[in-house]
């Protein structure tokens, strides 16, 4: 799939933002007043910034409001609702902390859980697609949730929890790559099933339907840069988990903490780029590509 900057920004930033909101909702860290304001401002900038980025790739932005209409069937629609509701509830909860210095525990719990549900619904937009076997796995929501929880814990400054969650994140990410590499083969979709000609013999693409490129090839048969994927996987794992972990294991220091955060966010971008660039859409089979 085409790794469009708008979707990479959207999923990475809003994942971090809603991850942080989850922890804030549960009172980690238990801040009030000005400090709470800073934490909530960061979370809202990330979450709202990500959501705004997601509208950049829309062909007709004037119809975007209609995306709230199909929550019964569409994960994208559910995501829109969950995002807005969590932002409202967490805004209320945050206002209590910042301006009144009171913590409405129940409101925080509900808002926190809804924030996590938002991350889950983002992941389901991708995980529901049978046409992209690498995404169509239970590990996809697990991956998004571990990114949200670990990134949120790091941003909320909980060192012990972050260390444990970074480990979980690294394991889920490696498992996702390992299973993902087999997903297209095990899905059973092949050039033979795509054309139905496998009964006659080995099918080879002879001539494509068009001499130039088209929307399908640009959007869904993105093969550029896949050859570097092994290297990028290592780099993203180092940035997202190993380096932040090393920073947190050393005696605490603000510079190291900042380095951990910067490294983690860079790693999230790299991993999310791979999430899209490596995903094979079965339509590629009609072109003899994967």
């Amino acid at each position: 799939m085409h790794p469009a900057p708008s979707v990479i920004l959207f999923t990475s930033l809003s994942g971090l933002g809603f991850g942080l909101l989850f922890w804030l909702g549960f009172g980690y860290p238990g801040v009030t007043g000005g400090t709470a304001f800073v934490f909530f401002a960061i979370a809202y900038l990330l979450a709202v910034g990500g959501l705004m980025a997601s509208t950049f790739h829309l062909g007709k932005k004037s119809n975007a409001i209609k995306a709230f209409s199909q929550w019964r069937s569409s994960w994208l629609s559910r995501e829109a609702w969950l995002a807005v509701i969590s932002l409202i509830i967490m805004g209320l909860y945050g206002a209590g902390l910042v301006f009144l210095g009171t913590r409405w525990t129940l409101v925080g719990y509900v808002g926190g859980l809804l924030s996590l549900a938002t991350v889950f619904s983002t992941s389901m937009i991708y995980a529901q697609l049978k046409s992209i076997p690498r995404w169509n796995m239970p590990l996809t929501p697990a991956l998004f949730l571990s990114y949200g929880l670990a990134g949120g814990a790091l941003l909320s400054g909980q060192i012990a929890t972050t260390k444990a969650l970074l480990l979980v994140l690294a394991l889920v990410q490696v498992a996702y790559w390992a299973l993902g590499d087999r997903a297209l083969i095990t899905s059973g979709t092949s050039m033979a099933s795509a054309t139905g000609l496998g009964k006659i013999g080995a099918v080879k693409a002879f001539e494509p339907p068009h001499t130039g490129t088209n929307y399908l090839l640009r959007e869904m048969v993105y093969v550029v840069g896949r050859k570097h994927s092994a290297k990028l996987r290592i780099i993203s794992l180092l940035l997202v988990a190993v380096l932040p972990m090393a920073c947190l294991l050393l005696p605490f220091n603000h510079l190291l903490a900042a380095l951990a955060v910067i490294s983690h966010i860079a790693g999230v971008f790299a991993a999310r780029w791979l999430f899209f660039a490596e995903a094979e859409h079965v339509v590629g089979l009609y072109y003899g590509k994967r």
Partner: peptide, 25 residues
């Protein structure tokens, strides 16, 4: 009603939907 998000084209395994670049739908 279409906002041109392209998700339906992703969901179709056959490549039967194309987003028109001029109209954005």
């Amino acid at each position: 009603d279409c906002m041109g998000c392209g998700l339906c084209a992703w969901a179709c395994p056959y490549g039967a939907r194309e987003l028109d670049l001029a109209a954005g739908i």
